[in-house]
């Protein structure tokens, strides 16, 4: 599905990503973890062309997308959420979910033909459906800016569901949430987002990762230091060292 081959990203002297080679298969749910500054969000930003890589190759379904622009990558079926929530704050909740579909292939700016009007109705129905999935149907006509954080995170998920992408990056989907809210989010990801698509979850909350991911990749200082089954990866000395320091790894 997605293959990164020797991908590098530098910011001046800082090597944010060094020689990252990794593959994500169809319908996999993978946790991407690592300490702060390890390069997790940079990897998402590079794949989704927020900024391009300095070296390496990115292949999506066999197509080289290394030099594609962000909107073209999105249209291929790659969607993402953001670590720092990004929503259209001055739009309604349902407006945000409908808007998520406007950039999809085949959409038109004006609805002159009956087909286009049918498309617009489909957008509305899909948005209503997505909001029901995440439990936001009752606040659909409120402005996005009026919602509390857990609901905004759910709105991001609704946006993803409405687009129905093949590959999803969830960047800290439970960031800033209480343990109960995080559990709800884990269930939502496992039940609604993960089925039938490749889902890559970046998260610091290991409970959530353990709940939804069958595979975990660990980044540290821009390098991939572990890749495998969560239970095996969590006890690796290199991973413990990356999180807790050398002393803890040898304790």
């Amino acid at each position: 599905m997605l293959n990164l081959v020797s991908v590098e990203k530098r910011f001046g002297e800082l090597h944010a990503l060094s020689e990252i080679t990794i593959s994500f298969g169809p319908n996999e749910t993978v946790g991407l973890i690592g300490p702060n500054g390890s390069g997790k969000s940079t990897l998402v930003n590079v794949v989704t062309a927020t900024y391009g890589p300095d070296a390496g190759q990115i292949l999506f379904r066999g197509t080289d997308i290394t030099s594609h622009e962000a909107h073209r990558i999105s249209r291929l079926g790659i969607a993402r959420t953001f670590q720092n929530l990004r929503l259209f704050q001055r739009m309604t909740v349902i407006g945000n979910v409908e808007a998520a579909q406007y950039g999809m292939p085949g959409n038109v700016f004006f609805r002159f033909r009956p087909d286009d009007r049918r498309n617009a109705r489909n957008f509305r129905q899909k948005a209503e459906w997505a909001l029901e999935q995440v439990g936001l149907q009752d606040v659909r006509n409120r402005l996005a800016s009026s919602l509390p954080l857990p609901q905004l995170r759910r709105l991001e998920i609704a946006r993803i569901l409405a687009r129905d992408p093949e590959l999803v990056f969830l960047d800290e989907p439970a960031g800033g949430m209480t343990p109960t809210e995080s559990e709800d989010m884990a269930r939502l990801i496992a039940d609604c987002v993960a089925p039938n698509r490749t889902c890559i979850v970046i998260e610091h909350k290991m409970d959530l990762i353990a709940h939804v991911c069958a595979r975990v990749c660990v980044l540290n200082a821009g390098q991939l230091i572990a890749d495998g089954d969560p239970e095996e990866v969590f006890v690796l000395p290199t991973v413990i060292e990356a999180y807790l320091g050398r002393a803890a790894a040898h304790a």
């Binding site: 406007y102 959409n107 700016f109």
Partner: peptide
């Protein structure tokens, strides 16, 4: 129209608009 919504999307957050397939 959709174009109007797209213009407002860009005005509010061009990075988010781009990540949703808007040129």
């Amino acid at each position: 129209s959709n174009l109007g919504a797209v213009i407002r999307m860009i005005g509010q957050d061009p990075l988010l608009a781009r990540s949703q397939g808007i040129d």
